Amino acid sequence: ISTPTHWSKLDPKTMKVNDLRKELESRALSSKGLKSQLIARLTKQLKVEE
């Protein structure tokens, strides 16, 4: 399991699906679903981290 990238360095809308999945997995979140779902899930988590 990798260390999550700091929230300020991430822009989920421009990330590739593989990168989105890695970030979600490093935060112990589900990495299953469509790209739009991955973006929404990661965006929501990054707002919590701010």
Rank of each mutant, 00 (worst) to 15 (best):
T14K: 15
H6Y: 12
K47M: 05
R21F: 04
L10K: 03
K47L: 08
V17P: 07
K44A: 08
K32Y: 08
S31C: 13
K47N: 09
T5Y: 04
E25P: 00
S2P: 07
K35P: 05
L42K: 02
P4S: 15
K22H: 13
K35M: 06
T5M: 11
G33I: 00
P4G: 15
K13S: 08
I1W: 04
L10D: 02
E25D: 03
L34I: 11
S30D: 13
R27C: 01
S2L: 06
K44N: 10
S2A: 11
L46K: 04
K13Y: 06
E49C: 03
R21C: 12
L34F: 07
K22L: 09
Q37N: 07
K47P: 01
S30A: 11
G33R: 00
K9H: 10
G33C: 00
T5W: 03
Q45R: 13
S30C: 14
V48K: 13
L38E: 04
L38S: 03
E23F: 02
L24N: 00
P12E: 02
D11A: 14
E49M: 00
Q45M: 06
E23V: 00
E23C: 02
K9I: 06
S2Y: 15
M15Q: 02
L42M: 07
R21M: 14
K47W: 05
I1T: 08
T14L: 09
K22V: 05
S36P: 13
L34N: 08
A28N: 15
S2M: 15
G33E: 01
L20C: 04
A28P: 01
L10P: 03
T3H: 05
L20N: 00
P12G: 02
Q45V: 06
T3D: 08
G33S: 00
W7T: 10
V48W: 07
S36C: 09
P4V: 12
L20Q: 03
S30F: 04
S31R: 11
E25S: 03
G33P: 00
S8K: 11
R21A: 07
L29S: 04
K32I: 07
L34M: 11
K44G: 06
H6P: 14
R27V: 02
S26K: 15
L29D: 02
L24A: 01
L38R: 03
L46A: 03
L29Q: 07
K13C: 05
D11H: 14
L20Y: 02
L24W: 00
Q37S: 11
S30R: 13
H6L: 14
L20V: 05
L10C: 05
K9M: 10
E49K: 00
L38V: 04
D19E: 05
K16M: 06
K22E: 06
D19R: 10
K13F: 05
N18E: 14
K22W: 07
T14W: 04
W7L: 06
Q45S: 08
R21W: 03
R21G: 03
R41V: 04
R21P: 02
E23A: 04
P12A: 08
T14C: 10
D11S: 14
E49Y: 00
I39T: 11
D11N: 14
K9C: 06
L29K: 06
R41N: 06
K22Y: 11
M15T: 02
D19K: 05
T5I: 05
L46N: 02
V48E: 12
S36G: 06
V48A: 09
L10H: 02
S8Y: 07
I39C: 11
L34H: 12
L29W: 02
Q45I: 07
K32L: 11
Q37P: 06
K13W: 04
T43V: 11
E49F: 01
S31H: 13
Q37W: 04
N18I: 15
E50Y: 12
L42R: 02
S2F: 15
S26D: 14
A28V: 12
V48C: 09
K32M: 09
W7Q: 05
S8F: 05
S26H: 14
K47I: 07
Q37M: 12
T5R: 10
A28D: 15
L42C: 01
S2R: 12
N18Q: 15
E49A: 01
K32P: 01
I39G: 05
V48Q: 11
S36E: 08
L24P: 01
W7K: 08
K35A: 05
L20F: 02
E49S: 01
S8G: 12
T5N: 04
K13T: 09
L38W: 02
K47T: 09
K35V: 05
P12R: 01
S8P: 03
K22D: 06
I39S: 07
G33M: 00
R27F: 00
R27I: 00
T5D: 02
L20W: 01
S31G: 13
H6W: 08
E50W: 07
K16F: 07
E25W: 05
I39Q: 10
I39L: 07
T43N: 12
T43K: 15
K22Q: 08
S36N: 08
L24R: 01
A28H: 09
K9D: 10
L34V: 07
S36I: 10
M15A: 03
E50H: 13
S2Q: 11
K32H: 11
L38H: 03
T43A: 13
T43F: 11
W7C: 09
Q45C: 12
Q45N: 08
S31T: 11
A40H: 15
E50V: 06
D11C: 15
K9R: 13
S30V: 12
G33V: 00
D11F: 09
E23D: 00
S30G: 12
N18F: 11
P4F: 10
V17Q: 10
I1K: 06
L10R: 03
R21I: 13
S2G: 13
P12C: 06
L10G: 03
P12L: 07
D11T: 15
R21L: 06
P4W: 08
R27D: 02
A28T: 15
S36Y: 09
L20E: 01
K35H: 14
T3P: 08
V17A: 10
N18G: 13
K47Q: 07
E23R: 00
G33D: 03
T5K: 09
L38Y: 01
K44V: 05
K35S: 05
G33F: 00
K35N: 06
S26L: 15
V17R: 08
K32A: 08
M15R: 02
Q37H: 04
K22P: 03
D19N: 14
R41A: 04
V17E: 15
R41P: 02
R41Q: 04
D11G: 05
K32C: 07
I1F: 15
A28L: 14
A40V: 09
V48M: 10
E25R: 08
M15D: 01
E25K: 13
D11R: 15
T3M: 13
L34E: 09
W7I: 06
S2W: 10
M15V: 02
A40E: 15
S26M: 14
K13R: 06
S2C: 13
N18R: 15
K9W: 06
L24G: 00
E50T: 03
K22I: 11
I39P: 04
A40Q: 12
E25A: 04
L20T: 02
T3Q: 07
L20M: 09
L46I: 08
A40F: 14
T14H: 15
S8H: 10
